[in-house]
């Protein structure tokens, strides 16, 4: 695989519904009610239920793992949660568009900058994955 600074990864579109949030709550063990109760989300000062930051981070990370083909090649991954992803109680849910570009390659490790956009604005800041490239 030919990888250099500027290489763009195939983009990814995430669709997150309330059902996805419930599933993620169960799988992750994060039952914070701001991710399933509008009432409690509003008490916490939010317009309504928001996605778990770790769900957005984990699902967005598929842009990297799908590309490199083996999740064990990810040496580090992380981001700031800059804006909430509001998930309405409807069938469409929230759409998050994920793009990524290689920002550096050295010693067989690619640094990948990930962007996740919801409602026209970025929801992850400084989202970077370090990936060991195949020989």
């Amino acid at each position: 695989m030919s990888v250099e600074k500027g290489t763009e990864l195939p983009p990814l579109e995430l669709h997150l519904t309330r059902a996805d949030l419930v599933r993620y709550a169960g799988a992750s063990g994060d039952f914070n009610p701001i991710h399933w109760s509008d009432r409690i989300a509003q008490v916490a000062g939010l317009p309504g239920v928001i996605a778990h930051g770790m769900l957005t981070l984990g699902a967005a990370g598929r842009i990297v793992t799908d590309w490199v083909g083996d999740p064990s090649r990810v040496r580090s991954y992380g981001a700031r949660f800059t804006r909430p992803v509001l998930v309405p109680d409807d069938d469409a849910g929230a759409t998050v568009t994920v793009t990524a570009v290689v920002s550096d390659v050295s010693d067989g490790i690619a640094k990948v900058d990930v962007k996740a956009v919801f409602d026209g604005k970025g929801v992850l800041g400084r989202a970077v994955a370090e990936v060991v490239l195949p020989d």
Binding site: A27, R62, P71
Partner: peptide, 13 residues
């Protein structure tokens, strides 16, 4: 279960 929850379909998982 976790892979399904984040939509990860990697066969390695």
């Amino acid at each position: 279960e976790f892979a399904a929850a984040i939509g990860d379909t990697s066969p390695l998982s």
